[in-house]
Amino acid sequence: MTPPKLIATHLNLFYGNRQALFDINVSIARNQVTALIGPSGCGKSSFLKCLNRMNDPISEARVEGTILLDKENIYSRSMDVVQLRARVGMVFQKPNPFPKSIFDNVAYGPRIHGLFRSNQELVEIVEKSLKRAGLWEEVKDRLDQQGTSLSGGQQQRLCIARAIAVNPEVILMDEPCSALDPIATAKVDELIDELSHRYTIVIVTHSLQQAARVSHSVGYFNKGYLVEFGETGDIFTNPKNARTLDYITGRTYRRT
């Protein structure tokens, strides 16, 4: 058994004096897909942002507890945030390409980190990333076009290409398919599946079907608590917790 990639212990998150996450303990397996599900506002995105410290720019956000990335606490003083975010990439719910050319979008990460020695190498990185994101065929002869001129699904895959161009170890995806049609979603699913051989992926999704399709483990959040975490098959056929059951079967919330 390979050691987990990420381990959160006693993680509490506060926005001002409102607590958004309560004592989260979870280990996220290496080179596997972990899906986070739960009702709106339960703290999935907040948890995801804890994993690459995207909560830092929010001034009122405060994190307690530890998150270990390969045994190194990402909230320790010695952790360099820029370095961390290069290792833990993120794809957002709403596609957010830069208003620049498709090429520049993908090249931005390698450029700021200096990941190439020659221009030729940069071109190769961009091409490889776009291919891995399944977008290459659609854009290969219009790389100088604005990234924002692509369709929603293409934009999302462009954002994925941009994220993997930095060659991160972990990819966090916050509802990457919430605005995509089934075909584009299937492409992203396939991509996630393919990426999961080399990357550790954490995906937030509102589509239980998607969580079931792509993930190896599922965590169910409710009101800031990680209610249940387990193997995907178990969660979707026989969850242990009544709230998880109610959520995945679409029942009214039970007060107990």
Binding site: L208, A212, F236, T237, N238, P239, L245, I248, T249
Partner: peptide, 9 residues
């Protein structure tokens, strides 16, 4: 309906 868990069973 794509039933899950108890509903699926």
């Amino acid at each position: 309906r794509q039933p899950l868990a108890t509903d699926l069973r």
